[in-house]
């Protein structure tokens, strides 16, 4: 592959989805884009780059983010890494259950809806895990209304999420057997999430790099195992934008290999909790708190 071809595809990925790939990831391009090249009858990665370039006389600019072509979309989606499993790393989910839910339930007016966002939902396990936690707490939730939104840039994964159909392998990663029995039904050799849990979650195609404001405010945000694929400026930009979609007492969860440290001041790590972040109080809020003391 010519360096110029690699650069073009790397620029496309970075501009549209935030994904950073170095030249050491050439093999990834080759393996993941092969099916697309076959489907579009494109013979090589160079030819693929030429095709994309020819359709973009203005070059790869931020403006194309809002209107990627079908070929570009296919390339972006093929390059995403979609691994996920139920109750991944367990701790964040336990933290929601034991700390954040009880606190939000006691501080928010009874009529206020609580909103939860799984910001890189992939095949849905994270969003459904959160729904199962809520379902387990049903008695203490009373008539409180909730919304769980799962978003992702990858259509195929999102449509799997919406189906709620998982292989035997997938339901054995992280999911306790009690939840399997309670919240899934067998469907052939696979397992389907039941209607109660399914109906608690909405999925929506959404690019994290786009304007988040249309999504509204979220009390709890899971943005796990996606920032690792971005460079520092992109991480900082996304985190700052997420902070704006959260109230002062909102809580953000990042993946085990992710942090806000050295990237943004918008969040502060929750004392004694790995991967849990709170919004950093604004100067005005700090002053207000000082006056109140």
């Amino acid at each position: 592959m010519k360096p110029a071809s690699f650069d073009l595809i790397a620029a496309l990925l970075h501009t549209i989805s935030g994904l950073v790939i170095g030249p050491d990831k050439l093999y990834l391009l080759e393996t993941r884009l092969a099916p697309i090249m076959k489907a579009h009858k494109i013979a090589s990665l160079d030819a693929l780059a030429d095709t994309i370039r020819a359709a973009r006389p203005g070059g790869i600019t931020p403006a194309i983010m809002n209107a990627p072509s079908p070929l570009e979309v296919a390339v972006i989606e093929a390059m995403t890494t979609n691994e996920s499993f139920f109750f991944r790393d367990e701790k964040p989910f336990a933290h929601v259950r034991t700390h954040v839910l009880p606190r939000l339930l006691s501080t928010r007016p009874a009529g206020a809806k609580l909103r939860i966002w799984s910001a890189a939902a992939s095949t849905g396990q994270e969003a459904y895990s959160l729904a199962m936690i809520l379902a387990e707490q049903k008695s203490s939730l009373g008539h409180r209304s909730f919304e769980i939104l799962g978003t992702d840039i990858a259509r195929e994964q999102l449509s799997r999420a919406g189906d709620g159909l998982y292989t035997q392998f997938e339901v054995q990663r992280g999911l306790p057997m009690q939840y399997l029995v309670k919240y899934f039904k067998k469907d052939g050799t696979s397992w389907r999430i039941n209607d109660t849990i399914r109906s608690m979650v909405q999925f929506k195609l959404f690019n994290l790099l786009s304007d988040l404001r249309s999504l509204g405010q979220f009390d709890i945000v899971f943005c796990r195992n996606v920032l690792i694929y971005f460079d520092q400026p992109t991480k900082a930009r996304v985190l700052a934008a997420i902070a704006k979609q959260m109230p002062a007492d909102g809580v953000l969860y990042l993946g085990g290999a992710e942090t806000v440290l050295g990237i943004t001041d918008a969040f502060t790590s929750a004392p004694g909790e790995r991967g849990v972040y709170e919004r950093t109080p604004t100067a005005a809020a700090r002053q207000f708190a000082a006056v109140g003391r």
Partner: peptide, 28 residues
């Protein structure tokens, strides 16, 4: 089948692995 997992729970099993399994599932 769910009925087997239910029986396992009823009689005091703590977890249920469906074969084929691999290292990740077992350790998980």
């Amino acid at each position: 089948d769910i009925s087997f997992i239910e029986q396992a729970i009823e009689h005091g099993a703590q977890e249920f692995i469906m074969k084929p399994f691999d290292e990740e599932i077992l350790l998980g």
